[in-house]
Deep mutational scan, measured.
Amino acid sequence: TETVELHKLKLAELKQECLARGLETKGIKQDLIHRLQAYLEEHAE
């Protein structure tokens, strides 16, 4: 999932992505995007 794609997701979809990775789901859309980006960078293959 790339940065551009995360911005296209709806808030509910971002929350699902966070939940699937065991991440916090509180906060505004930008918080969730930032959290997912950090996770994806950390776990990049």
Rank of each mutant, 00 (worst) to 15 (best):
L32Q: 02
V4C: 14
E41C: 09
Y39E: 05
D31F: 01
I33V: 11
A44V: 10
L32N: 05
I28T: 14
E41M: 09
L6Q: 01
I33T: 07
K29H: 04
T25A: 10
K15M: 07
I28F: 07
E5K: 08
E5D: 13
H34T: 14
I28Q: 15
K15P: 00
T1W: 08
L40D: 15
K26L: 07
R21E: 00
E17W: 08
R35V: 03
Q37P: 03
L36M: 09
A38Q: 11
K10T: 15
T25C: 10
L40Q: 10
L32V: 04
E42Q: 15
L11I: 10
A12M: 08
T3F: 11
A20Q: 11
H7A: 12
R21Q: 04
L19F: 11
K15E: 10
E13S: 06
E42K: 12
Q16T: 07
E2C: 09
Q30L: 11
L32R: 01
C18A: 02
A20M: 13
E45A: 12
E42T: 13
I33E: 09
Y39D: 07
K8I: 03
E17M: 13
D31L: 03
L36A: 02
I33F: 06
L19I: 09
L23A: 00
Q16M: 10
E2P: 09
E42I: 10
R21K: 10
L40T: 12
V4G: 13
K10A: 12
V4L: 14
L19T: 13
K15R: 12
I28L: 15
L14F: 01
K26G: 14
H43W: 03
K8N: 15
L9H: 03
K26A: 14
L23G: 00
L23V: 02
E13K: 07
L9C: 03
E45Y: 02
L19C: 06
K8Y: 07
K29Q: 10
E41Q: 15
E41A: 12
E17V: 02
T1K: 15
E13P: 00
L32T: 05
R35F: 02
L32K: 02
L6E: 03
L6H: 04
K8A: 10
I33R: 06
A44K: 10
D31E: 13
E13A: 07
L32M: 03
K29A: 08
R35M: 04
Q37V: 07
A44E: 14
D31V: 07
A12Q: 09
E17S: 04
K15A: 05
L11Y: 14
H43Y: 05
T1A: 10
E2N: 15
E13M: 05
G27T: 01
R35L: 02
G27W: 00
A44M: 07
Q16I: 06
K10Y: 01
D31R: 02
L40M: 14
H34P: 06
L40K: 04
T3G: 11
K26D: 15
A20T: 10
H34S: 12
E42D: 11
T3N: 13
L6R: 02
H34D: 11
L11P: 05
H34R: 14
E2V: 09
A38T: 13
K29W: 02
R35A: 04
Q37C: 06
K8F: 03
C18R: 00
L40C: 06
R35N: 04
L6C: 05
K8H: 08
T3Y: 05
L23K: 00
L14G: 00
Y39F: 04
A20L: 11
C18V: 01
A12K: 08
T3R: 11
K10D: 15
A44G: 15
H34K: 05
A44H: 15
Q30G: 09
K8T: 08
E13L: 03
E13Y: 04
E17Q: 02
V4A: 11
L9Q: 03
E5R: 09
I33D: 04
E2G: 12
E41P: 12
L23W: 00
E24W: 01
Q16W: 06
H43Q: 09
E13T: 08
Y39T: 05
H34I: 07
D31M: 04
E5W: 11
K8G: 07
E45I: 06
E13W: 01
Y39A: 08
H43S: 11
L32W: 00
G22T: 00
A12P: 11
Q16E: 12
H43R: 12
K8C: 06
E5S: 10
Q37D: 15
L19V: 10
G22C: 03
I28P: 15
E24C: 09
E41T: 12
L14M: 01
Q16N: 09
K10F: 01
K26Q: 12
A12T: 11
E45W: 06
D31C: 06
A38H: 15
T1V: 12
A20W: 04
D31Q: 09
E42V: 12
L19A: 14
A44I: 06
K8W: 03
R35E: 05
E5Q: 02
L40H: 15
H34C: 09
L9S: 03
E24L: 06
E5C: 11
E2W: 09
G27K: 00
A20Y: 02
T25N: 04
I33W: 02
E42H: 15
K26P: 02
Q16V: 06
A44T: 14
L32D: 03
H7G: 11
L19W: 08
C18Q: 00
L9R: 07
T25S: 09
E42N: 11
E45D: 09
K10L: 05
L6P: 09
G27I: 01
V4N: 09
L11S: 06
T1P: 07
H7Q: 14
T25L: 04
E2H: 09
K10I: 09
R21A: 04
I33G: 02
L14K: 00
G22K: 02
V4D: 08
Q37G: 09
L23R: 00
K26H: 14
K29V: 03
G22N: 05
K8L: 08
H43D: 09
G27D: 01
C18E: 00
H43T: 10
L19R: 09
H43L: 03
A38V: 10
E13H: 03
E24V: 06
A12S: 13
E41S: 10
L14W: 00
A20H: 02
A12C: 08
A20G: 05
T25W: 06
R35D: 03
Q16F: 02
K8E: 10
E17P: 01
T25M: 04
L40E: 15
E24P: 11
Q30S: 12
C18M: 03
H7I: 04
E41V: 11
E17N: 03
H34W: 08
R35S: 05
K8P: 01
L36T: 03
T1D: 02
E42G: 11
T1F: 10
L40F: 12
K15S: 03
G22E: 03
L36W: 01
L23Q: 01
T3D: 07
R21M: 04
E2A: 11
A44L: 07
L6S: 02
E17R: 05
K10Q: 13
K29T: 03
Q37S: 12
K15T: 07
K10N: 13
R35K: 05
L23S: 01
L6A: 05
V4H: 12
L14I: 07
Q37W: 05
E17H: 07
L40I: 15
L11F: 13
Y39K: 10
R35W: 00
Y39L: 03
E41W: 08
E42F: 10
K10E: 13
H34E: 15
E41Y: 14
L36H: 02
Q37H: 09
Q16P: 00
Q16K: 15
E24M: 08
R21N: 05
A12Y: 06
L9K: 10
Q30R: 11
Q16S: 08
Q37N: 06
E42P: 09
I28R: 14
R21G: 00
Q30M: 11
L23H: 01
G22A: 03
L32A: 01
D31K: 02
T3V: 08
T1L: 13
E5A: 10
H43K: 13
L9F: 05
E5Y: 04
L32C: 04
Y39C: 08
R35G: 02
H43M: 06
A38D: 07
A44S: 14
L11W: 09
Q16A: 11
L23I: 08
L19G: 08
R35T: 04
T1M: 09
L23C: 00
K29D: 02
I28K: 15
A12W: 09
E13I: 07
T3C: 04
L36S: 03
E5G: 09
K26Y: 02
K8D: 08
E24T: 09
A38R: 13
T1R: 10
G27F: 01
Q30W: 05
Q30T: 11
A12F: 07
G27A: 01
R21P: 00
K29S: 05
H43F: 04
K8R: 11
K29L: 02
E24F: 08
